[in-house]
Design a protein around this nucleic acid. Structure first.
Length: 352
DNA sequence: AACACGGGGCG
DNA sequence: CGCCCAGTGTT
């Protein structure tokens, strides 16, 4: 079975591979961008981002010249914004150390910020046919099921076991096709839920299929715990201007812009909010009033749920705070913002 | 080794 | 509502 695994897989791939813009790509730059976009992101979600990104940034130097904020703008809505900031940092690194050319060895590629073992193997194999097996969610699932690996795939030991298996099975004649094939196979045939075992080329040898263990494999141990956060956003109007600020802390949405806010770990009623020291401090030395407390959003994410309350406030003087950027309302489109801010702005734009 | 990091889709 | 997705960096 181990002997002809690659043969069966590549035969399946020849008949069933998906047509994708980066599929036959040999340009390491484009492969890099596609791989970063597809980290923890489905093809259907990332496809248009890839097309628009390559259009706007056709080369490493174009990223270098555009700056981090422009890259974040093209990442807006995709999530995991560290990826975008790392792309910019990596572009600077590649301009300064490699004259804007992508390095050609696995170890050099691995040194680039935002590129880990998976992405380094993907670029090395797709662009240069180097024999490094990719280990992603698909590979972990596919090999765990076919070979009956019960070691948890979110443990170091489980990953190591799968990696050794993958490197043994890899088609050394065509690492690029082998890697893309096993991931396409995982994405379409051996899907996480409801895998199509009836029409599978491995149905007669697959451990999970033969033992009806498809829903048990792969094994995972860690469970994600979530917390609630309460964001009180101030939509402040002053002389046809609004205030925004950049998120700088090591936290969600770092580098994106938003309204000034008070964050709490529990709900608070309106009178308490007005009396809150942080709010009082925000509006010192000026007259202000709450126009409305209308929009409330429950923004559910993987590790946290953000309950956001948007409060419309008018002030009679400019707010003196170095972090606040006064802009006219329609210029907010120039700044990268979160989906939560997008939803709010969309709603009030429709209303007006 | 555990955790944080987004957003969307699916059962 | 929980799980998953062409994972990586930090602690």
């Amino acid at each position: 079975m181990s002997d002809n695994f690659a043969f069966i897989l590549l035969n399946w791939y020849a008949k069933n591979k998906r047509s994708l813009p980066w599929r036959e790509e040999k340009n390491p730059y484009k492969i890099w961008i596609s791989e970063i976009i597809l980290q923890q992101t489905r093809v259907s979600q990332g496809l248009n981002y890839y097309i628009r990104f390559i259009e706007r940034f056709p080369s490493i130097s174009s990223i270098y010249e555009a700056g981090e904020q422009e890259v974040l703008k093209y990442w807006q809505g995709l999530g995991y914004y560290t990826r975008a900031r790392n792309i910019y940092a990596a572009a600077v690194y590649l301009m300064e150390n490699y004259q804007g050319k992508f390095p050609t060895t696995y170890n050099e590629i691995l040194k680039i910020k935002g590129i880990g073992e998976y992405t380094a193997a993907a670029i090395a194999s797709f662009a240069y046919q180097l024999p490094y097996a990719v280990i992603d969610g698909n590979v972990l699932r596919v090999l765990s099921r076919i070979f009956g690996v019960y070691e948890p795939i979110d443990s170091t030991k489980g990953k190591k076991e799968i990696r050794q298996l993958a490197n043994k099975l890899m088609c050394k004649k065509n690492p690029s096709a082998f890697n893309q094939a096993i991931m396409d196979f995982g994405a379409t045939q051996c899907a996480p839920a409801n895998p199509d075992c009836k029409n599978c080329c491995f149905s007669n040898v697959c451990y999970a299929n033969l033992h009806y263990e498809q829903t048990e494999l792969p094994v995972k141990t860690k469970k994600i715990k979530t917390r609630n956060r309460y964001f009180y956003y101030f939509h402040i109007s002053y002389q046809n201007k609004i205030y925004i600020q950049k998120r700088k802390s090591k936290d969600i949405w770092k580098g994106l812009y938003e309204f000034p806010l008070l964050e709490l770990d529990e709900t608070i009623d309106c009178e308490k909010l007005i009396a809150h020291p942080a709010v009082q401090n925000l509006f010192t030395n000026l007259n202000w009033e709450i126009l409305s407390v209308s929009s409330t959003y429950k923004h559910i994410l993987s590790h946290q749920t953000i309950i956001a309350v948007f409060i419309n406030i008018s002030v009679d003087k400019a707010i003196n705070n170095a972090d606040f950027i006064p802009i006219s309302f329609d210029r907010i489109a120039d700044y990268p913002i979160s989906r939560l801010m997008e939803k709010y702005l969309e709603k009030i734009t429709v209303m007006s």
